[in-house]
Computed example of a mutant assay.
Amino acid sequence: MAFFRKRGNKWEYRISYVDRRSGTTKETSKGGFKTKKEAQIAATEAESKINHFGFSENGNEKIDHYFQKWLETYKKPNVKPITYSLQERNVRLNILPRWRNYRLKDITRTEYQQWINELRDHYSEGTVRRIHSIMSAALTDAVFEFNIFRENPIQKIKIPKDNQNTSKVPYFSKTELGTFLTTVKEPVKNAKYNKSIQYYVLFNLMARTGIRIDEALALRWDDLDEAKKSLTINKTLVYPLNSSPYVSTPKSKQSDRTIKVDNTTMKLLKQQQTNREEIHYLYKNYRRSQDNLIFYQHDGRWLRTNVVRDYFKEICKRANLPVLSPHALRHTHAVHLLEAGVQIKYVSERLGHANMNVTADTYLHVTEKIEDDALSLYENYLQDS
C-alpha cells in the first residue's frame, strides 16, 4: 500500500510490502515529485514492479555489488578454483564493464539481447555462450536464492551462431607444423638462455600428444614411464590472477588419463633431461626445480602460461605463420590423427574429451572429409568387383 505526504514544496511516496525472503514487512520510498499526481503515478509503477517481479530493496542494488556477493556466496565455495578463476575473470572483464552501474531491476531483455549481439562481433559463439551462462546463472540465483525478483529477465536469449566456414578450429598443416618447430629449434641471438631446448621439447610434446598447455606445464618426471613409453596426465597447472600458481585436478574425469608416447617424443624428453643438466652448468643462476618438474623457469618454479603463449605467438610471427595460440597444437594433433585414418574413439580418449560427440563436433570439417574419403573407397570397391 502506498502513502503520500508533502515535504516542503515536494511530494513523496512510501510503499509498504512483505519481503518474500524474510517474511517481514518493509518499506521503500522516493521523493522530489512536483505534484501529488506525479508521486501517485511513480508509486503505482513501483508497486507494479514489486508485485510482478518481487523487487525488494535489493532490486536497487548495483550489478557490481551483486556479482561480488554472488561469486563469494554461490561460486567460490562450490566450484573448482580454476573454474572460479575463469568465471571471476569473465565477470570482471566482460560483464561488469557493460553492466557495472546498472541496478538489477534495470536489466531488460531487449537491451541484454543487443549486448549479446555486440559480443558476437568480437567473440566466438562458444565464448559468448560462456559469458551468457554466467550472467544467466547469477540472475537465476537472484530469483531463487536471493528472492530479489520472480523471474530471470534474460531467459530465452538467442546466441547468434557461427557460420560453418568460421567454425573450423585453428591448427597447423603438416608443413606448417614442421616450419614452426624448425623455427623454435633455431637459437635466438643474444637470448639469455639460448642453449635451452625446453620450448622446442615442450611444443613438440604438445603437438605429438595433444595435451593442454596447463597439463604440460604441470608434468613431473615421475609422470613419464620410459619402460611403457607412456605419460600420465593427472593434474593441471592453475595460474590465477594476482595469486600464486598451484596444481589442481584435471579439467574433467576423462582428462585424467595415461597416453602412449611415440619414439621421437621419448628421445626429445631424454634430451630435455640432459639439456637441463647442461643449463645448470652453463648458467649458475639457473635453479633446479624442487618439484621434479619437466619444464620450469630459471628460478625453478613453474613456467608462466602467459609467457609461454607470448613466446608461441612470437615464433608464429618469426616463421611467417598464422599467429595462433598454443592450444592450436592440441587441435593440430587431433586433426593429423584423424587425417591419418585413426579411429575417432581413440582420438577422443587420447585428448581426454568427455565423449566422442565432443570430438566429432569439434573436428566436423575433418570427419566430413573422412566420410567422403570412405564413400570414395566404397565406390571404387564396387566398381572393381
Rank of each mutant, 00 (worst) to 15 (best):
G178T: 08
I315K: 07
T274W: 06
T183L: 03
G32A: 12
A43E: 05
K267I: 07
I294C: 10
V307G: 00
Y346H: 13
S85W: 01
K317Q: 14
P97A: 06
T25S: 15
S376N: 11
D310H: 10
T236S: 12
L337G: 04
K284A: 12
Y74P: 00
S255N: 06
N355R: 09
K49M: 09
G31T: 13
E176M: 07
D384W: 09
I116V: 14
E145G: 00
S48A: 13
Q68G: 07
N204R: 05
I370W: 05
L241P: 00
Y363Q: 02
L377N: 13
K158E: 09
S252F: 10
F172Y: 15
V169P: 01
L303W: 05
P81I: 03
D106Q: 06
N60D: 15
F33S: 11
A328D: 01
Y193S: 03
Y84S: 11
G178W: 06
A2G: 03
Q40P: 02
T28A: 05
Y311N: 01
N234H: 05
E72P: 00
A46P: 00
A216F: 03
N58I: 00
K189A: 12
T232V: 05
V261R: 12
Q114M: 02
L269F: 11
M266V: 15
T140Q: 14
A137G: 12
I370N: 15
F55G: 08
P240D: 05
V79T: 03
E151W: 01
Q114E: 12
H52I: 11
E215P: 06
Y102A: 04
S22A: 10
A142Y: 12
K260M: 08
G126P: 06
K345S: 15
T24D: 13
E215Q: 03
S248N: 11
Y239R: 06
R287P: 00
H52M: 07
Y13N: 08
L364Q: 07
V342G: 08
S133N: 08
E368M: 06
S85D: 15
L329W: 07
L104F: 05
G178K: 13
L375W: 08
A328H: 01
Y378V: 09
N94Y: 11
D291E: 13
Y296A: 03
I148T: 13
